[in-house]
Amino acid sequence: MFTGGALIFLLVIGLTVLTIILPQERRRWLAQQNVVIAGGIVFPVAVLSLLLGYGFFVTRGHVGAEEPTLRIEVIGEQWWWRVRYLDESGGVRFATANEIRVPAGEPVEFILKSADVIHSFWVPSLAGKLDMVPGKVNTYTFSADKPGVYRGQCAEYCGAQHALMAFYLVAMEPGSFDAWAAGQADPAWDRVAAELKYGRDLFIANGCGACHTVRGTPATGDLGPDLTHVGGRLSIGAGTLPTNIGTLAGWISSTQHVKPGVSMPSFGNLESRDLRAIAAYLESLE
């Protein structure tokens, strides 16, 4: 298509240049209505008919995807992605956020919804985009052929932090995917280290559980991302920052600075040691 487009472009520009540089008698053939009919009607009708036909078949190709082996519900929220892995009956196996892991080479059905405004689900390297429209459920089936990490991004302007609404799609070898999925379904790891216990207690004491869930703890909030295995994710803040203890601490302390407008307030009131402990706890939730 690009080649064809470039050729047509060169043709038109070439003809225009000819009309300027050629002596009048050698370009007279161009100056007639038949040229307009040929170039302006016959040629485009022919080319566009072919292109359109091709387009219809490609479109159909997109539709006739195989039966998905996995169904994942992705819900766009301002400005992050709620991700739910569904079982055969449509129940939720486990929830995660801002990161989607799939087995490489297997068709996956994404069930796309929105919780607030219109978002658009897009992994540029893997497939086109599809909007998440309130009151509407769109589905999209595609597969990642090769294992790897693919960046995804909200493609429909959705408010203040539209720019910082990304995610990572991680295609894994099917075997390791199964292991990962099993791990995700488990509740949060309960480490013995004193520091981590201290961090967990602070996490609960500071009311984080009102919005976040960490399965296996009293934190069961549903407003923000599920953090049960947040430490194992590649990013926090919906693709904004890589996950490490430092970014976790910085995020918790200054969300409204890092990503102004997000629902989570800046916990700037946390003392340095406590902040570090909570961050360490979250980092440990792999």
Partner: peptide, 24 residues
């Protein structure tokens, strides 16, 4: 011209399924 446009509008019905959303 309109006949061409009508033809183009009519053709996909032979190829493209009616109601499936994007991507199936």
């Amino acid at each position: 011209l309109s006949a061409v446009a009508v033809l183009w509008q009519g053709l996909p019905v032979l190829v493209v399924p009616a109601c499936t959303g994007a991507g199936g």
